[in-house]
């Protein structure tokens, strides 16, 4: 356990520079977005009211009140989130491959630690998990701050105020809702699925690291089989409409399948990293 925690700490430290860049980028971009877009709106209101002599009501009926939702749909908001997501997905690969390639042979060190090799595997997964949660946490803190900035720029008559949970739920395309679900169960489901995917991916990577060229095929096949098995009950329902199961039964089935696939992936990874992996 102690070694596992030390490894998690170590893995986090290795990514911390890029991670801080991502956080910094998100904060700067989103706050800049709030300020620019709010000022832009205010500018339009000023032009309409003072130069084109529109009344406040006329302007609002033409343009609508500004809500923070409109700001959340801009590139200023979505690009840093997309970038962070892409970086973390990319890092799922990098977190393994960086130990093999380059002038060093750090993978030798990791595999020769006097601790269960599964700890190395779990520490890498945990590091990814913590970094995802960290970014989501930052976003959660950032939203009320951005809301405050928004309120301080736009006068009360021109804006539509809403509580935090509405900000999250109503954001365009529902992307924030996926990241920050409004119920704990939904949170477990979203992140559970996310983590199952990470474990499947890690298993595929270990296939490749164990059997190289043949391993690429094993890895891709494993990935698709695992995902297909997981989605099968839902797909069967949608495409063939079996109708055997109630939605609640499908839900339970999915949870069981998800857990089984996750446990199986970890078990398989444990086997590969102990018996098959090659430096």
């Amino acid at each position: 356990m102690k070694n596992y925690l030390k490894l998690v700490d170590f893995e986090l430290k290795r990514f911390i520079n890029i991670y801080f860049v991502l956080i910094g980028l998100t904060i700067i971009s989103q706050i800049t977005g709030v300020i620019l877009k709010s000022r832009d709106y205010l500018e339009r209101a000023n032009v309409a009211i003072y130069e084109n002599s529109l009344s406040l009501e006329q302007f609002i009926s033409q343009n609508g009140k500004l809500s923070i939702h409109q700001l959340l749909q801009t590139g200023w908001f979505m690009i840093p989130i997309a970038l962070s997501a892409a970086a973390l997905i990319f890092y799922c690969f990098l977190i393994w491959y960086r130990d093999w390639f380059g002038k060093n042979t750090f993978i030798y060190r990791l595999l020769m630690l006097p601790t269960a090799r599964l700890n190395v595997f779990l520490a890498k997964a945990t590091a990814i998990f913590l970094m995802v949660l960290g970014l989501v946490g930052i976003q959660l803190i950032l939203l009320p701050i951005e809301n405050t900035i928004f309120k301080s720029i736009i006068p009360v008559d021109l804006r539509m105020d809403m509580p935090l949970n509405e900000i999250i739920n109503g954001a365009g395309y529902g992307y924030l809702q996926i990241l920050i679900p409004n119920s704990f169960v939904q949170f477990l489901i979203n992140y559970g699925i996310g983590f199952m995917m990470v474990f499947i991916l890690f298993t595929s990577i270990l296939f490749e690291r164990s059997f190289r060229i043949k391993g690429i095929i094993f890895g891709i096949v494993y990935y698709f089989v695992a995902v297909t098995v997981f989605l099968f009950p839902i797909m069967a329902e949608i495409y063939w409409g079996f109708g055997y199961l109630y939605p609640s039964e499908i839900f339970v089935l999915e949870i069981i399948l998800g857990l089984l696939i996750t446990v199986f992936s970890i078990w398989l990874s444990n086997y590969l990293i102990n018996q098959k992996v090659t430096v």
Partner: peptide, 16 residues
């Protein structure tokens, strides 16, 4: 896993 306290390997490239 306990063997790594008893036997170690120095490869030809640095392990750090």
């Amino acid at each position: 896993k306990h063997s790594y306290e008893k036997i170690t390997f120095i490869p030809d490239a640095i392990t750090m």
